[in-house]
Design a protein around this nucleic acid. Structure first.
Lengths: 152, 152
DNA sequence: GAGAGATACTTAACATGTTAAGTGAATGCG
DNA sequence: CGCATTCACTTAACATGTTAAGTATCTCTC
């Protein structure tokens, strides 16, 4: 069997960890986890979203998002109100405080991203991202192994 | 601020998830998590290792590994014995049952990996892995942002 | 050879990942 | 209309990620 430390999943895991390792301390100083930060960033880009849509954008599973939203709401970083037309849905938006927090974290975060880009090379980074996107696409058609079996 | 869904961390996260999505169902059928599988694979390649070394190989943090080893030991998939020369260290090895389980999972796992390689292209996959390794390297010098501050 | 410090883990505590089950609100259809 | 189904979440339960603290053992130095 192939040396597993050279397998694609491990390469991806290590690469991602190397990157996140740069950001975590800064986020931590502001009392944010990586996932909470993803949610705030996703919310900052829009007015309000449904939870399901937010899950897709922030790439989180429903249950994780549910818990995190509960906590972020308790910290007054986001706001929630049920949709008028459909009582099942709730519209989530970032609060004033949330915006303020983002503003205090963003500069540092941007600087770190810039340093990573500088070290690895902007062109190379773009190539890498292109390949990652292509990989995702080539597996998306496949669905999960389960789906394949179910469909067969 | 850059659309975060196009950021490097998100690209890496989505790509890895797309890949792992293929493997998880098969592992699940055998009652294994991704991390447990990593440990068994790491152990299969050698006779016995110390916990710390295993953590590095399987890319797991100590506390996670500690818990998982406890569970794998309870399931008789691994064996542990304290080193003679140094009572602090414990040598971990895969058990006969562990080997048997691996043998039952490996074929399917190999097939999935082969399909991924086929879809994405072997050459392209090698290029991607090379870039991921390079990314890791270019950030390794940097250490974590904390270290940098500490050193400055 | 005794005590301070380092080492190799383990435990603890809290946050998230993951799957299954639960809840309340809409929808579709006879 | 009535009611089974679907939908949008939430809760639950268990596994791992992450940092800090704890424990036992070893090492090094005086």
């Amino acid at each position: 069997m192939r040396d597993f430390s050279r397998s694609l999943p491990m390469s991806l895991l290590r690469a991602r960890e190397a990157v996140m390792r740069q950001f975590r301390p800064s986020l931590r100083e502001h009392g944010l986890t990586e996932q909470q930060w993803r949610i705030l960033r996703a919310l900052a880009a829009i007015d309000a979203v449904e939870v399901t849509e937010l899950a897709r954008t922030a790439f989180l599973l429903g249950p994780s998002l549910s818990r995190i939203l509960r906590d972020l709401e308790a910290r007054n970083l986001i706001e929630r109100k049920t949709a008028k037309a459909d009582q099942r849905r709730s519209m989530v938006s970032i609060s004033k405080e949330g915006v303020k927090l983002m503003a205090s974290v963003a500069p540092n975060s941007e600087a770190i991203y810039a340093e990573i880009t500088r070290r690895f090379g902007a062109r190379r980074l773009a190539e890498l991202q292109e390949m990652l996107g292509a990989l995702e696409l080539s597996l998306a058609e496949l669905g999960s192994a389960d789906d394949t079996i179910a469909e067969g």
